[in-house]
Each structure stands twice: as C-alpha cells, then as structure tokens.
Design a protein around this nucleic acid. Structure first.
Lengths: 118, 118
DNA sequence: GGTCATACTACGGTTGCCGATATATAACGG
DNA sequence: CCGTTATATATCGGCAACCGTAGTATGACC
C-alpha cells in the first residue's frame, strides 16, 4: 500500500468524508506534503471500495449533485492498524541502521597501521 | 519512495553490500515480510545510483565473476533519514486517527432523541 | 461578468515493482 | 553421476498505482 492510499484510509478513520473532504484532510494530516489529485483519489476510492476496505456511507444531494460520503469498514480499520504497525517497524529499522552507520571518513581512522594521520 | 527502495537504503546504511547481500539484509530487516526479486533489486540499484543516493563502493572478482559492492552516499543517508522521519509522522497520524475512530455501533447510542434504546 | 471554492469524472502517461528466465559456480545428497 | 539448493548477477515484459491535465457544473463573492 502506497502513501496516498494509506492517507485516505487514515482520513476516513475518524469520520465519514466525501471526496473533497478527503483531499483536505489528507493535506492536513500530511502537513501539506501530500496533495491528492482527482485521478489518484477516485481511482483509489474505487479500488478500496472493491477491496472492501471502505464503503459508501451515504449520498447527499447538494445543489442537484450527489455528494458521496465514504467510511472506513471494519476490515479497513484492521488494514490501517496493520499498516501503522508496519510503518513503525520500518521507521525503527531505518533509524537503527542509520545509528550503526560509520561516520564519514571513519575508515581512515580505522587503519592506523597503513600510515595513519600526520 | 516505496518500501523495497527504502529497505535497500536501510540495508546499505550500516555497511556496503553486494546485490545478494542486500537481498538477505532486506529479508532480515523486514522480518521476512519483504523478499526482493532480482528485477526489483537491480532496477532500484541502477535508479538509486543515477540519483546519487548510492554509489559503487568496490568490485571484487570472485570465481572470475565481478561482485559489485554498493554503499550509501551522504545524500542517500540524508534521504533515508528524511524517510525515517516521514514514516514516523505517517505512523503517528494513522494511530491518532484510529484513536479518534468511533467504536462500531456507537452511532446508535448517540441518537437518544430518535427513539433510543428500550 | 470574472474568479474562486466546491465537487466529481475521464483519459493518457510514467514510474516502480514483480515474475520469469537465463547464466554460472560450488556444495551436498541420493 | 546427477539433481537440487545456495550463491550471484542480468534482462525482459507486464501491470498496478499514481500523477497531471482537462472537462463539467454550481454557488458565492467582488
């Protein structure tokens, strides 16, 4: 699951939202780093609906136009929780490996027998 | 940046590795959840090299065959650190939204005026 | 009357990942 | 002696997901 999809699920966790509301919520949740395009949003919405991770909550007619609200399903909530765990583990692994990283130029100090520093 | 790419950078953070070593390290770091295919690995390696996030560390001839070691560049380390931060924030946002999630069936208890429970 | 905010749909393109296949050596078991 | 597994790298075709853009439509504000 990629970032836009993950953020859509995240946005829907607290309450049902319609398309445009999701766009705003995702922008908000990502501190402005992720701005959903219509193509991404509705493609993902169809996909997630088919997978059963989200479902249509209700449809409100507004100005003769249908506003469609989506909500997170139980399955979707479980999937999101799993992703949260996964991201946490990946972040921890990355941080740990970075901690193990030798400092730049360290190899010079590790070869004193080869001539070393002047 | 997607998961396989992120894990390749993570694997290279601690020390330079050759292709097969990266595959093993990624499997290890992801608790067996991610198994890199050759297509993914070498495609990503070329891409990351072009982007300057990794570089060829050295080439060792083994059994008449070249074993190529890659290492994380300074730019790559910075990019990885940024991704670690990003994943942490995304995980935190997901967890927080899940906390705000109304329990299943909660809406019934929130409409006492409509007839409510018997 | 023009622009902006709201709100959804459709289409084409690119990227990154995956699966499969090929090649080659060495070790181990039947 | 042959098959399988592990080590090790490379290439190709295909696909899913995402992105950018354009189109459609209404109401509010200037």
């Amino acid at each position: 699951m990629q970032e836009p999809t993950y953020l859509i699920l995240t946005a829907l966790a607290a309450r049902p939202l319609h398309g445009y509301g999701i766009v705003q919520s995702v922008t908000d949740l990502s501190d402005g780093e992720v701005k959903l395009r219509p193509g991404t949003l509705y493609g993902a919405l169809d996909r997630l609906d088919q997978q059963g991770l989200i479902a249509v909550d209700r449809e409100e007619p507004v100005d003769g136009r249908l506003r469609r609200y989506y909500r997170l399903s139980e399955t979707g909530a479980a999937a999101l929780a799993e992703q949260v765990e996964r991201l946490s583990r990946r972040a921890a692994a990355g941080a740990e490996q970075l901690r193990l990283r030798p400092a730049a130029g360290a190899e010079l100090r590790l070869r004193p027998a080869a001539g070393g520093a002047a």
